[in-house]
Design a protein around this nucleic acid. Structure first.
Lengths: 241, 241
DNA sequence: GACATTAGTGACCGAGTGTGACTAATTCGC
DNA sequence: GCGAATTAGTCACACTCGGTCACTAATGTC
């Protein structure tokens, strides 16, 4: 049980006890927006809103609003930073006061968002897409959010069909595989990828082919999940140490 | 980019601009404490701290404190509710105002904690362990936290060696398997379980046997992780639909 | 038409997993 | 004492899954 309000007597309970008075906290919602850029994954950063440090970059963020759900806030902040909303969002982690936040907020809730390839950053150099290995120095809490968001994204990749949200309604399997490779940050073997995809009944071919430059034309597919996987695996002990 | 503070001029930036004024929010930290009770998993609930609804149950919670890290707060709240600290904690989810919280806080950060079997609830009927299928009605946000915490616990089971924290330093493999079964909520096959455990190099036998009632005595083991698994799996498409 | 390039599939192999059956060592009931 | 019951522990088989190589197919380039 949590600590009692000081008004409650140690032995009995007073007939009318006051509710505990809770101090209000500074709480931000921050979003890590990813988009593929060629074969690299990039993160959206904006110029610091603190006018005393305009040369610094930071993740898009805003204060949490009591009347607004957290995921709605994340989408709003993304739309506000980018013009368009993300194709998918997910909560990543909440962090407290031990690491500095650019807005000096006490607590922050980080979201992850995916944006389709080709979405331009807004005008005027106030925002930009940064490849993962070229991210400028960030406030510690924002730096940790980027790392956590990337880990969460890769965990989520084989749980939900997030990759399809980065593609147009019809796509080739090579396009799909490239999206997975960019998000995972590693190459996949073509035959393995297609075998797993086939077993999952996630896509269906349509009667169209697309020829892109040289090479054999590729059949187009569309996202059409059919079966549910039972997926009853045993214990896996996938530990690291 | 997020909305500008109203003090910044629409065209240029004033020479000295004020930082955006952020409204403070009511933020709680709530903890879902699990412990095995026989072959069932149970959750710790305490009497509502709101004196106007003492007959209701709720999860242990308290307001977040700016000077205290969130995981430290979760441990403190657990210790305050139970006397002893949990063997392991993990952040589960942050939730906003759409669901009611018993303390009427605007935002909450839920933690999950594991407590070794046999830890008694504190005196006086102010707290109790409830089996998962006998949980009394809770505030909507707390009900959702319990469900999320259980899902998170099961996800985490094959990622980190959490089950070992519920056991004494030496244990039999049947004990270990039973802990996994209680946490997962389903039976496991003995041979599969031991084969996977052996492959993961997590335990080592010690030169002691324990006889519990009838049946062949079981060898004792201790947690002693040896190797690191490479664990490079391909894409898995473990979707539900 | 030879070649490069991209798409797509088949087949093999080894590792991993679900499962039933078996042996081993103890207590309980008689 | 002795068999039945009970729990511990292992083995072996079948099947699946995932990594890999090799091959065919269809296009553009020269």
């Amino acid at each position: 049980m949590r600590e009692r309000p000081q008004t409650s007597a140690p032995a009995g309970r007073p007939a009318v006890a006051a509710r505990p008075v809770i101090r209000r906290a500074l709480l931000s919602v921050d979003i890590v927006l990813f988009t593929p850029h060629g074969r690299r994954l990039t993160v959206l950063l904006v110029r610091a809103t603190d006018p005393r440090a305009r040369e610094r970059w930071e993740l898009p963020w805003d204060a949490a609003r009591a009347e607004e759900a957290l995921d709605v806030a994340a989408s709003r902040i993304a739309r506000s930073a980018l013009g368009a909303g993300p194709a998918w969002t997910r909560q990543v982690v909440a962090s407290g006061g031990e690491q500095r936040h650019p807005g000096e907020t006490e607590f922050s809730i980080a979201y992850l968002g995916l944006v389709p390839a080709g979405t331009p950053p807004p005008v005027g150099g106030e925002a930009g897409w940064f490849p993962l290995d070229e991210i400028p120095p960030l406030a510690p809490r924002h730096r940790a959010m980027v790392d956590s968001a990337l880990a969460m994204l890769r965990l989520e990749l084989d749980q939900s069909p997030v990759a399809f949200r980065l593609l147009p309604p019809t796509f080739t399997l090579s396009q799909l595989q490239e999206v997975y490779e960019v998000l995972l940050g590693r190459k996949l073997h073509k035959a393995s990828f297609r075998r797993a995809l086939h077993a999952a009944w996630l896509v269906e071919p349509i009667d169209e082919w697309r020829s892109e430059g040289r090479g054999r034309p590729a059949q187009l597919f569309r996202y059409a999940p059919k079966k549910r996987r039972t997926g009853r695996r045993g214990v896996r002990f996938d530990l690291l140490g």
